[in-house]
Nucleic acid binder design. Structure first.
Lengths: 118, 118
DNA sequence: TTAACGATTGAGCAATTGTTCAACTGAATG
DNA sequence: CATTCAGTTGAACAATTGCTCAATCGTTAA
């Protein structure tokens, strides 16, 4: 904080409104975490992966075939999804099977899809 | 479509599961629109703007003061939010007052915040 | 008309992103 | 053991992003 605060030339704006709005965004930490989730789901490839895993448990190879991308590309994205605790995986021999690790994510996606169809 | 489809060397993976997952992501258009909304909300500055506007009608100057950024930076972000029909504005003299243009967005943000606090 | 000011716009830049490529790991098979 | 192959990883690259700076627009007031 305490940086070179920019304000309209005259000085004060709408003090009361700004103060009220301030209270709506005071929890910086939570906001950053929320934006992180949005960022994860903002890439079409990752969003498709999540939606696919919401329906079926799949191996890396399955997802690569499904999305027509290399296993490497999928693996990179799965790592991000895993770091965000959105997916988890189990190993079975050479294969790695991925599933969703968070049921709330489905509601989030449903809410976003609802916005698109209005 | 019809690109150099990559699949595990052996050939077939889990046909039935892939086919089932395919149905979950068949509506490409909707998925792209959903990811667009997520992308808009994935930037902390934009997310704060939206959360602030969910509580109060504010002018560009107010938001700049609130977030400690230049009016230019805010204006650029507001244009993106306006293009996505998430905010709207009214003019009053020199000032431009912004408000939310979509009540569903608040639910979306609430859902994301819920994910962070579990 | 002129000056002031809130707001907008475009160029430019550093930082971040998603993919490919190549090398590598680790488990299963011969 | 050596080979095979699903999966992972890191480097590199183009493309995108969010901000600053400077110029400009549009409205208000002198």
């Amino acid at each position: 904080m305490t940086k070179p605060i920019p304000v309209c030339k005259i000085g004060i704006v709408h003090k009361d409104k700004v103060k009220s709005a301030q209270s709506a965004i005071k929890n910086e930490h939570n906001i950053l975490e929320a934006s992180e989730i949005f960022k994860i789901l903002s890439d079409p490839t990752r969003l498709k992966i999540v939606m696919a895993l919401a329906k079926e448990e799949l191996c890396v190879c399955d997802i690569a075939a499904l999305l027509n991308l290399t296993e490497s590309a999928i693996s990179h994205q799965l790592r991000l999804l895993k770091n965000s605790r959105i997916v988890k995986h189990r190993r079975d021999g050479k294969m790695a099977y991925y599933t969703l690790d968070d049921e709330h994510i489905e509601d989030l996606i449903k809410a976003a899809l609802q916005h698109t169809t209005e």
